[in-house]
């Protein structure tokens, strides 16, 4: 059960009309025997947006993405993608990179990409394959077998396979997991370039900072239900400015046991303090200054990470079990 005091968001303001939606889910539910994976889910992804899909493990993200891809069938509800009911023809207009990805290891990189683009009815794919290989710095590996690639290279090949047929909608399940910072930047830039070319991008991630920086819209699903949906600003607006970001010379030690502080998120050199509604930030600042030299003190809205933890963290489970 989702705690009753979770903020319930209305549909994003100025929700686009149906022909402007890349994905529209109405009351979609899916169960696996007795386990409810997705319950009464409504979801609308505007065309041309970058849409972040967040939620803890096992919350129903992958099931939802698989239903959008027509790999799993919903028990009830309606799914429209690119303005149409799901069909094999529509699937050709969608690029999909699942979280658990595999490649035909004995195939050569270029052959695999041409084959996969062919499965997606891609046209003039050879030139496109070569362009993407060059763009992701894999030209030298084009005629090598996939089994010779590193994990990061394999992931880039997987990404190319997803986008090479020039789909209108791209769905990426955890596209950044396992990538080093350099390759993360490469993929991130590629995604943003695709968006600027008009492609709608939906991706799930556990990297909250990436979602904050990249996504026009963010949706959080928890235990099969949608608990957040909107722009980052609209989501944060639902929460009070109850967070203080502090950086001192002495780290966490100086922010412990401060009056009015409910919770501390320790990031090492920086701490985020969640304060009670009736707490006085000035008083908290004074207490900290008495203990150490303050290098930074910001009163901010809670970060996406903090919101995520408030919803899905251990404290929420205590509320649920109370």
């Amino acid at each position: 059960m989702v705690p009753s005091d979770y903020p319930q968001f209305p549909l994003p303001i100025n929700m686009p009309q149906q022909n402007e939606q890349s994905i529209a889910l109405h009351s979609v539910s899916k169960s696996f025997r007795k386990h409810v994976a997705v319950s009464e889910l409504d979801l609308f992804v505007p065309r041309g947006s970058v849409y972040g899909f967040i939620g803890p493990n096992g919350s129903g993200k992958t099931t939802t993405l698989r239903m959008i891809m027509n790999i799993l069938y919903p028990d009830s509800g309606d799914i429209r993608v690119l303005g149409e009911q799901l069909s094999p023809r529509i699937a050709d207009r969608i690029g999909y990179m699942p979280e658990e990805r595999g490649l035909y290891k004995r195939m050569k990189v270029r052959d695999f990409l041409v084959f996969f683009a062919g499965l997606k009815n891609g046209k003039d794919v050879k030139a496109s394959v070569d362009a993407w290989l060059e763009r992701l710095d894999l030209t030298g590996w084009a005629d090598k077998k996939i089994e010779t690639l590193s994990k990061g290279m394999s992931q880039k090949v997987q990404f190319i396979a997803t986008v090479v047929s020039r789909p209108e909608l791209i769905i990426l399940d955890e596209p950044f997991s396992g990538l080093d910072p350099v390759n993360t930047d490469v993929i991130r830039e590629a995604i943003l370039q695709l968006q600027s070319d008009g492609t709608t991008v939906v991706f799930s991630t556990h990297d909250m900072s990436m979602a904050e920086r990249m996504c026009d819209f963010i949706c959080m699903i928890f235990k099969g239900k949608k608990v957040l949906d909107g722009t980052l600003a609209s989501i944060q607006d639902e929460y009070a400015s109850d967070t203080i970001r502090v950086q001192t010379a002495d780290g966490r030690r100086v922010v412990e046991e401060l009056e009015g502080v409910e919770h501390i998120n320790d990031f090492g050199r920086q701490q985020e303090l969640r304060v009670r509604d009736d707490a006085d930030p000035q008083r908290i600042l004074r207490q900290i200054m008495e203990r150490s030299a303050v290098q930074r003190f910001d009163i901010v809205k809670p970060s996406l990470h903090d919101i995520f933890v408030r919803i899905a963290g251990p404290a929420s489970r205590e509320v649920e079990h109370a």
């Binding site: 094999p88 690029g95 699942p98 595999g102 997987q158």
Partner: peptide, 19 residues
């Protein structure tokens, strides 16, 4: 192999299970 090496879902993103 395609199932255990997680190729199946990649392929199913492009073709139907029957295909």
């Amino acid at each position: 192999e395609e199932k255990t090496q997680r190729i199946a879902e990649v392929v199913l993103g492009a073709v139907r299970p029957f295909e």
